[in-house]
Design a protein around this nucleic acid. Structure first.
Length: 149
DNA sequence: GCGACAG
DNA sequence: ATCTTGTCGC
């Protein structure tokens, strides 16, 4: 696990938070599942035209599972299969949405960051539940533009 | 030592 | 993630 930690720390410095004002014409959605009782990792990616959301292309890839699920290190388990699926695409998507956390990670380097850095494509983590931290319920009303942080 | 813990 | 019955809400 120390090795994974070292890789994580190194790649983290390549995360860019700035808006690069890229025009998003295609968005990729990625999710991972497992076959053979966890022995095989299976990643699927669907690329949609934005904002019409019509399907452009899709790809599925399988790789032998070589890393256990360890909170904080999920990317090491799922990223290999995702990279393989992305390599099958004809065109690189402009943005990637993936299951799991991105910056909301104890070391600010969740699955979305890890993937985004490796393929150099802006990515957003869309987790279904919380890894760490807590928050108050956001105000129902939208904050005024330009209001103080 | 105990509890929490993306997927 | 994966399995899986009963239950809840629209």
């Amino acid at each position: 696990m120390a090795k994974a930690r070292a890789i994580q720390e190194a790649l983290r410095d390549r995360v860019i938070t700035q808006n690069r004002f890229a025009e998003v014409k295609t968005v990729a959605g990625v999710d991972v599942g497992f076959d053979k009782h966890g022995a095989v990792t299976r990643a699927a990616v669907a690329v949609l035209r934005f904002p019409s959301l019509e399907l452009c292309e899709r790809a599925v890839a399988r790789t032998p599972t070589r890393f256990p699920y360890v909170p904080g290190y999920l990317s090491f388990r799922e990223v290999p299969a995702v990279l393989k699926a992305l390599r099958k695409l004809k065109a690189r998507p402009d943005l990637i949405l993936c299951d799991g956390q991105g910056l909301a990670h104890p070391r600010r380097f969740g699955l979305a960051c890890h993937l985004g850095v490796l393929v150099d494509i802006p990515s957003v983590g869309v987790a279904k539940s919380r890894l760490v931290g807590e928050h108050d319920e956001p105000p129902r009303e939208k904050r005024k533009l330009g209001a103080a942080a």
